[in-house]
């Protein structure tokens, strides 16, 4: 007999772990849902869900917290993907939260709906009585996330208490909760940005076009390239110019910057990322620049 050493590649290990996590949730919770934004991490997460339950359909709905400030290309992609899968999509709208007076729209040039999403998300979780919510966050993204568990407990206010987290050992996850509490589940915790791209390449997964280089009208603010769009308020001192850009993350148009890049294929993106010296959040997210603990604070409140 041939001797094999049964080595498993890093993507296979990460995929097997994520599938295991998804099945644990499907087995132990009554009303899970999966946050699907149309961004690359949630696209990968969705593919893992497809794999975990095949040939059965994904046994939980998808939810998108729609700020109303999303890129058209991403919304179009979201809807197409949902239809292909025959999945159920719940859209929780920040505009509705504003109209109902749950939150107040920020004003001024730097107005963003980023922080308002938390209320919309928590309201939707409560209304739909979700007890487990899958998110595509990764530990390599940010230092508060580096400390978060795969099964991350949220109290009845949706809050995360970083100092009081449940120990997580082996592949045993504790999903026990009382009424009104829920668990955020992060199956991609151990993936890096490069793993996500390698996986997209290996699996031949389709992603929204804004991830690839394209020509766009942009302007510069705080060293970031923001898009020309109705919802983005631009001052007279912020002239528009055309540039060849792509997005490394997909968020709101008001706070997601593009990077100058000519990478037009997944292979070229991987090459570019392997050589880049700036984190994806540092390069492209105004929301994380606010302070040293910006992410920790938002997460405590119940953010993604």
């Amino acid at each position: 007999m041939l001797q094999r050493d049964y080595t498993t590649s890093q993507l296979d290990v990460l995929e097997a772990e994520a599938i295991h996590i998804m099945r644990e949730v499907a087995a132990e919770f009554e009303r899970p849902c999966l946050l699907f934004s149309g961004g690359k991490d949630s696209i990968v997460m969705l593919r893992i869900a497809e794999k975990a339950f095949w040939p059965a359909p994904i046994p939980f709905p998808l939810m998108h917290v729609d700020t109303g400030h999303n890129f058209d290309e991403v919304i179009e992609f979201r809807d197409r993907r949902v239809e292909e899968l025959g999945a159920k999509l719940v859209v929780a709208s920040v505009q509705d939260s504003i109209d109902q007076g749950r939150v107040t729209e920020q004003t001024g040039r730097r107005a963003s709906r980023n922080r308002l999403q938390t209320t919309t998300l928590l309201d939707a979780i409560e209304e739909q009585r979700y007890d487990a919510v899958f998110g595509g966050a990764r530990r390599d993204e940010e230092k508060a996330r580096a400390k978060e568990r795969v099964f991350s407990f949220r109290d009845e206010f949706g809050q995360w208490d970083p100092k009081n987290q449940r120990p997580e050992l082996w592949n045993l996850y504790n999903g026990r909760i009382a009424q009104g509490e829920h668990i955020r589940v992060f199956p991609l915790s151990n993936w890096t940005e490069l793993d996500v791209w390698d996986y997209i390449r290996r699996e031949g997964i389709e992603i929204p076009s804004i991830y690839f280089a394209h020509t766009r009208k942009v302007f510069e603010r705080d060293g970031m390239l923001l898009p020309d769009a109705d919802v983005v308020q631009r001052g007279d001192d912020e002239p528009l110019f055309e540039a060849v850009v792509r997005y490394r993350t997909v968020g709101d148009m008001t706070c997601t910057g593009a990077v100058q890049s000519s990478a037009a294929t997944v292979e070229e993106i991987i090459e570019e990322i392997a050589a880049t010296r700036i984190t994806e959040r540092g390069a492209t997210r105004a929301d994380d620049r606010a302070s040293e603990a910006a992410m920790e604070d938002r997460k405590r409140e119940g953010y993604f």
Partner: peptide
């Protein structure tokens, strides 16, 4: 400071919890 991610850790200069880091 790279590994001590929580506000309390930075303020007190201690490491409270397991942090996961990645490199290849």
């Amino acid at each position: 400071l790279l590994t001590d991610g929580l506000r309390a850790e930075r303020e007190q200069g201690i490491t409270i919890d397991v942090a996961y880091r990645y490199f290849a």
